[in-house]
């Protein structure tokens, strides 16, 4: 049986172009903004990055966006859907004392809402509104409940008028200028994309770690102090 060129052309168009259109329709072209998954296919909340919008978080983790708005005191915030998780720290900048409500708080909230494990960092706070939602609707573990009891703060009531939004925007711009901060889930490959070379990493940790590892994971598995390594790497970044 001979394969006619026209049939071959049709085969390629149907299979490859058709496949592309199908994938597009299934919204699988999610770019690099896809959270990583656990082995069972569930998305890992600790892979939520500051660049994820609340509508993306809502979609990936099946948490209503209104719940997220309420949890983070943003029920009156305009354009909540396109607000990024990392914008939180800019919104509440200067209003929370030494505490911070930011991307880490979103990661924790999502994990506790779904009953998924997450590393507990002692710089992650939640508003009382978030804790109430978690206790009523979520499935936090006992460890997460104990953590919430220690790291809860009263909601900051804000009116998002024009002046406040301008201040937030300015904070956001400042935040963007200083995004090269090493966090627990920052991987070595991310650090390299920020301009740190292999040699520089080796000079700090003594060898070149697997680039897919987060700095914290690497430090824990090699008995290194995360905060020390983080400081050294950030010093290089600021040069």
């Amino acid at each position: 049986m001979k394969l006619n060129q026209n049939i071959l052309a049709l085969l390629l168009i149907v299979v490859i172009l058709g496949g592309y259109l199908l994938i597009n329709n299934m919204n699988l072209f999610t770019d690099e903004k896809t959270p990583t998954r656990y082995e069972d296919g569930t998305y890992d909340p600790s892979s939520i990055r500051g660049s994820f919008t609340f509508s993306e978080i809502s979609e990936f983790f099946h948490i209503p966006i209104d719940t997220l708005s309420e949890a983070f005191g943003l029920s009156n915030y305009p354009d909540m859907e396109n607000t990024k998780s990392g914008d939180l720290s800019g919104i509440y900048d200067g209003l929370l004392g030494d505490a911070e409500i930011g991307n880490g708080s979103v990661q924790f909230f999502v994990a506790a809402y779904l009953g998924l494990p997450i590393e507990l960092n002692e710089d992650t706070y939640l508003f009382k509104s978030a804790v109430d939602i978690l206790l009523n609707e979520g499935t936090p573990t006992e460890e997460q409940k104990a953590y919430m009891a220690r790291f809860t703060m009263d909601n900051v009531l804000m009116v998002f008028d024009e002046e406040t939004l301008t201040t937030i925007e300015e904070n956001h711009e400042l935040e963007e200028e200083s995004t090269l901060i090493i966090k627990g889930n920052t991987t070595f490959s991310e650090i390299m994309t920020w301009g740190i070379t292999e040699e520089e990493i080796i000079s700090i940790v003594g060898e070149m770690p697997n680039q897919i590892l987060s700095v914290r994971d690497y430090c824990e598995s090699h008995d290194l102090t995360f905060s020390t390594i983080k400081k050294s790497l950030e010093a290089l970044l600021s040069e």
Binding site: T36, Y38, E39, I212
Partner: peptide
């Protein structure tokens, strides 16, 4: 169970096709 940075399901499906 994860993808190389910047790669996702679509590339794997296209590879299969």
């Amino acid at each position: 169970g994860t993808f190389v940075q910047k790669i996702h399901e679509s590339a794997v499906i296209l590879m299969g096709l």
